[in-house]
Design a binder for these strands. Structure first.
Length: 769
DNA sequence: GCAATCCACGTACCG
DNA sequence: ACCGGTACGTGGATTGCG
């Protein structure tokens, strides 16, 4: 019998007559879609407050519902060996069983691992990473629906193949028609569903709504995709389409495998049986470079070349009446864009999934903290380390990083040095972990009254070591250059995912809701970080370098190669850390403020940091003006060019020569509207929109413009799509947008507001000599 | 009684 | 629903002056 080799698409817990079962959905080496079905009885553990054997028999005697067997096993708790009672359950929900036990024996001891999800336990115990190849001796035991079913008889072994199999991908977009405000499934129909599939075919369903929905369901089932990709399925399309199917068809939106309908699962993601539901909106929302998380903006960010004839949401119903083809075209463009996103991003998504042990559809929705935690949980299983229950502990604040006061003005030849992976390196170097904290002796962070034992290696350093070793291995393969182009892409994506995960570990330890929250570990990491950068800065001074700026793990100095290499050498020798020359700015502007500067790189790129020009809550015109001013100054090397540029923009504003779109200010709604204490323009606008039937939920961004009139700003703010050019308060855009953003970067040169207000004509540079 | 000043709130950024 | 450090606009309360 040849072992079955397959790529894990998804994992699900299924309740069957004989007890709980795990179904692994996969694609086999010969392209078959398979179900690998295992019986799996999940356990939880008790660190007993009495003799373990006697507790075990007391628990067994309770004959609790759901308990299959009770035994005493050897595990580890914070690195120390410990005898614990293992309660094996005959049901999926170990939390419920543990709850029953706690009711009967409140004093039995600390309970571990009962709140870990069933399918996650299975993946952890078998070291099964989703989105990777695995092989197992298995018996083919019939079919479920049209899918061959296998029963494993041996252990799962990771298989070497790197690239995913040929997956069938279906990208879709849907458009809804609403007469008033946001579409509501109780009221408004689905107008279009557009699909694009990986075999190159495209299609649209229009016409009667029941035909639209039936057509979509039919195509999904006949094409039988492994991946269903979209932009906005979790929060919008799946719930909407499901609700409409119930209403219009009187039945489920049967687009999962075996006719299942989508169901909402953990982290607010929608799950499709046997398929991976990839929602790139989740990814867009986590992309910090994006200021507005639209499909168009994300497409552009990814470097996908596409022309959109955008029909904005507020305009769909209107356009549908006037120019139906335009809406159709736009919807298809969206579906095509989603398919392109899949091509660009799938390697990274699969890598992240494999590294975090989270199925691909979960991993996009999960926040960073949960991704790190999921990986740590898998790592803990391997060590036999017990997994603590999640519980909210009170937050204890602690000091973070240092930021050096910048030297304002224009600088030439600025070298940017940074510590490589500073926090992970420090955690490894000092054995920082929740399980290595000691109050006596140990390796002590400066200024703190606790330390870390030097040996044995703690849980976090071990986990980091594994991540970093894996990253080094992947890098070596990339540098060898022997892998094929597809494998290369996969390796590169994997390397990025490993780096992201390692770098997030510090933040995780300082997160009070983390299972392995450790204020001590987080606090020590930043304390050592401060010490390290402070001493490097001091050394830089001693070597005769001028320190212009520094933040957390970066130091900006004049580009003196000899001195810099001495500094790099010193850091390596004395601090045992790696500092490298990351980049050089030909010229750079620093303001009085920390975290706000701009530089022109040696290869001619403009970098803007922290300034209005990179903020999402300033109007496009103010950002554009500031960026132009900075660019003039940096490229010419003199501030006077920037002054002239600023005046050009001021003139544009005075003349009202700016399109409305560039005047929109976007601000995020971060909480339910009724929770706001202060009156703010974007909240006032949001409340108006809500009143008019628009759905406004936390996370949404509200776009508004400031119009002429009396009163407070919030009285003059209007939704951007309900304002027109002739209503604009140009004075506001001059005084509170363009003027301040330009002045911000010119002020260090002694330029005043008055200088900016002079008209561009009739003013010569000698006026400022 | 009014303008200047101060401060809390809120958002978004940096690393 | 990852951390702390930081900047800064706005609204509204407080302060300072007469």
């Amino acid at each position: 019998m040849a072992p079955l080799r397959f790529w894990i698409l998804d994992v699900a817990g299924e309740v069957e007559e004989g007890g709980p079962m795990v179904w692994l959905w996969g694609v086999s080496g010969d392209g078959e879609r398979v179900i690998v079905r295992s019986s799996f009885k999940p356990s939880f553990y008790i660190a007993p407050s009495e003799e373990p054997d006697s507790l075990a028999s007391r628990i067994a005697d309770l004959r609790l519902e759901g308990v299959e067997s009770v035994s005493v096993v050897e595990k580890r708790l914070r690195g120390q060996p410990i005898k614990v009672v293992e309660v094996k359950c005959g049901v999926e929900d170990t939390k419920e069983v543990a709850e029953r036990l706690r009711k009967r024996l409140p004093e039995c001891g600390e309970i571990y691992g009962d709140d870990v999800r069933y399918s996650q336990k299975f993946l952890c115990l078998n070291k099964l990473a989703p989105c990777s190849w695995v092989s197992v001796e298995a018996i083919r035991s019939g079919h479920i629906g049209s899918y061959p079913m296998y029963t494993p008889v041996g252990r799962f072994e990771p298989a070497e193949l790197v690239a995913p199999p040929d997956l069938r991908v279906l990208a879709f977009d849907a458009q809804y028609l609403s007469e008033r405000g946001s579409p509501q499934p109780e009221r408004d129909p689905v107008a279009i569903i557009s699909i694009v599939s990986s075999d190159g075919s495209e299609g649209q369903f229009v016409g009667g709504e029941s035909e639209v929905l039936r057509g979509f369901i039919r195509v999904v089932n006949s094409f039988d995709p492994d991946i269903v990709a979209s932009f906005g399925s979790n929060k919008r399309h799946m719930p909407y389409l499901s609700a409409r199917a119930r209403r219009v068809l009187g039945g489920p939106l049967a687009i999962g495998r075996l006719g299942a309908e989508p169901h909402t699962s953990v982290y607010g993601h929608v799950s499709l049986q046997g398929r991976v539901n990839l929602d790139f909106q989740d990814m867009a929302e986590q992309t910090v470079e994006l200021k507005l998380e639209s499909l168009e903006a994300f497409t552009l960010f990814l470097g996908i070349k596409m022309d959109f004839d955008t029909v904005e949401e507020f305009d769909v119903a209107e356009t549908w009446k006037r120019d139906r083809d335009r809406v159709l075209r736009y919807s298809l463009q969206r579906a095509r864009a989603v398919m392109e996103m899949y091509r660009v991003l799938s390697d990274y998504v699969f890598s992240l999934s494999a590294i975090t042990f989270m199925p691909a559809d979960h991993v996009l929705t999960a926040s960073t903290g949960f991704r790190v935690e999921s990986r740590l949980m898998a790592f803990a299983s391997g060590l036999g380390e017990l997994i603590p229950r999640r519980r909210e502990v009170s937050r204890e604040t602690y000091p973070g990083a240092v930021v050096i006061e910048p030297k304002p003005g224009l600088h030439r030849e600025v070298a940017v040095l940074d510590f490589r992976s500073m926090y992970p390196s420090l955690m490894l170097k000092h054995n920082i972990s929740f399980d290595t904290v000691v109050t006596q002796d140990g390796d002590r962070p400066p200024g703190l009254d606790f330390g870390f034992r030097r040996a044995p290696q703690g849980f976090i350093p071990l986990a980091l070591r594994e991540l970093l070793d894996e990253r080094l291995r992947v890098r070596a393969i990339i540098q060898r250059g022997s892998a094929g182009p597809v494998e290369m892409r996969v390796y590169e994506a994997r390397e990025r995912a490993l780096k992201v995960t390692a770098n997030a570990t510090y933040g995780y330890l300082g997160w009070p809701a983390a299972r392995w929250y450790s204020r001590e570990a987080a606090e020590a990491t930043t304390a050592w970080g401060r010490a390290v950068i402070t001493s490097a800065i001091q050394k830089a001074g001693e070597l005769g370098l001028t320190v212009i700026y520094g933040d957390t793990d970066s130091i900006f100095v004049n580009h003196d190669e000899a001195k810099i290499s001495r500094l790099v050498e010193w850091v390596s020798q004395e601090l045992g850390l790696e500092v490298r020359l990351e980049k050089v700015y030909q010229r750079a502007i620093f303001t009085e403020a920390k975290k706000r500067y701009a530089g022109l790189t040696t290869d001619g790129r403009l970098e803007l940091v922290g300034l209005e020009a990179v903020r999402g809550d300033w109007s496009e015109i103010a950002k554009e003006a500031q960026a132009a001013v900075i660019e003039s100054v940096l490229r010419s090397g003199s501030w006077s060019a920037g002054l002239l540029k600023a005046r050009e923009y001021i003139k544009k504003i005075r003349e009202g020569h700016v399109p409305l779109k560039k005047l929109v200010i976007w601000k995020q709604i971060t909480r339910p509207l009724e929770d706001y204490e202060a009156t703010q323009p974007h909240i006032v606008v949001a409340k108006q929109l809500l009143e008019e039937g628009w759905r406004i939920t936390p996370g949404d961004k509200v776009g508004f413009v400031i119009t002429r009139g009396p009163g407070r700003l919030y009285e003059k703010a209007r939704p951007y799509f309900k304002a027109s050019q002739d209503l604009i308060d140009w004075e506001y855009y001059l005084e509170k947008q363009v003027l301040p953003s330009c002045l911000r970067v010119l002020e260090p040169f002694g330029v005043t507001e008055k200088d900016l207000r002079k008209s561009p004509e009739g003013v010569t540079l000698t006026d400022f000599a």
